[in-house]
Simulated scan of single mutants.
Amino acid sequence: MAETPAPEQTTGTIDNTLDNVEVDTSFESDSAYGDELSSYTASLASSVLDYRYENGRRYHKFREGSYLLPNDEAESDRLDLGHEMYLQILGRKLYLAPVKNPQRVIDLGTGTGIWAIDFADEHPQAEVLGCDLSPIQPSLVPPNVKFLVDDIESDWAYEGNPFDFIHARYLAAAIKDFRRLIRQCYQSLKPGGWVEFQDWDGFPYSADGSLKDTGLERYFNEVTGTFQEVGYECRPGPKLEQWLKEAGFVNVHAEKFIIPHGVWPKDRHLKKLGAWFQAQIEAGFEAGALAALTRFKDWSKEEVMILASQARADGRNPKIHAMYNFYVVYGQRPEK
């Protein structure tokens, strides 16, 4: 992954104090100023809610193009289905880090906000912030949770009001520079605070070779390959432990969970996990491929739909034993 470029050098001194900012003195009254403020606020709201529509799906407008999956109702339903799957994987736990009495928490890439809402219900003493590119979260939420539209790959400003716990789940194929993101997590945690990433190695495998030369394998070759070509990290799971250590985190712990695709395993627990995984990914095949392949590979919508259909059919084939690795990795900022 390319290193973050050094800041551009400037000549002279830039003064960001109020003395260097010209004041608009045209307002004749407080009401005129209020009207001006309202117009700018409306403009900002419009830029966030003016979604992009493409191939029958809806995409975010804020920082347009930085995230390649839809944000429509179908995708929200899939994400909420995935939330239940993650609870099944973790034994109904929202997180594994040994967090005690958290007071200030942030959920990165919160999506529908379902994790943040559940966490706020479990920890009514905590102030919970959910951050995402899209304002698709519900309006009726616990009083201790708030949602913010922002790009988590941009510069943060939380160092002056740091967190006890930072949580991030399923950012594979959404983030280009995980190392930078993890460093920002470190800088925005209180001493002794915890960060936890829950994420995938976003490519399937099979122990018996049954995945080879299937439509399912081709789907991931095409789609994951395209995401990687344009700079997204699709396989962060196995790298997270090392990235956290490099950033300075201590007490780093990593757990790997094997998740089957479908109900082919004999083990009842794995069969259940496989059913949940299949249910959510079948809706995700189209969502994951449409923007990437039509924008960057000149595929038609029809070609993408055929590829998704072939992957979906192979996922239901009991003779194809695909599996995925899911990782939960947490670490602590040193007390001193």
Rank of each mutant, 00 (worst) to 15 (best):
T112Q: 08
T13Y: 12
Y324G: 10
T4V: 06
D50N: 13
T110E: 08
S31K: 12
G91P: 10
K272G: 10
T110L: 06
H321E: 06
E84Q: 15
A45F: 15
K61P: 08
V141H: 07
Y95Q: 00
S31N: 12
Q278M: 06
Q332L: 05
A275W: 11
A116E: 07
M85K: 11
Y51T: 07
G274C: 05
E222W: 03
D151A: 13
F119W: 08
E153C: 10
S309P: 01
A74R: 15
I175E: 09
N16P: 04
A279I: 03
K297H: 08
T214L: 09
A2W: 15
Y51D: 00
N144F: 14
T294H: 00
D24R: 10
E28F: 05
M1D: 09
R104E: 12
P143N: 12
A279W: 01
L189N: 06
Q103A: 12
P143F: 02
G160W: 14
R179K: 14
R295I: 01
A2G: 15
K336I: 06
M305L: 05
N16M: 11
V328C: 08
L68N: 07
I114H: 03
D77F: 07
V21K: 04
F147V: 02
A254M: 01
D155P: 12
E153A: 09
S309K: 13
Q125T: 09
D35R: 14
Y51G: 03
R268D: 11
C234L: 07
R104H: 14
S38I: 05
Y67L: 01
Q228T: 15
R295P: 02
R104I: 11
E3D: 12
F119N: 06
H261K: 00
P135N: 08
P238E: 08
G130D: 08
T226G: 01
T112L: 05
G160Y: 14
M323C: 13
R63T: 07
D19R: 10
G315P: 01
D155Y: 12
R268T: 12
Q280T: 05
T224F: 11
Y95M: 00
N325E: 07
N221R: 15
E22S: 15
K272V: 09
G111H: 14
T25Y: 04
L240R: 03
L270N: 00
F249G: 03
H60N: 13
E196T: 03
I114F: 10
Y219W: 00
L293M: 10
E233G: 07
N325L: 02
F203N: 06
E8F: 05
A322L: 03
Y53V: 13
F163I: 02
G34L: 13
L270T: 01
L171W: 05
L181A: 07
V149L: 10
G262R: 10
Y170F: 10
E303P: 04
W299H: 00
W194V: 04
V263E: 03
T110M: 06
E196A: 08
A275E: 05
L307R: 01
K271I: 03
N71M: 02
R316H: 14
R183V: 06
V99T: 02
D213N: 15
H253K: 11
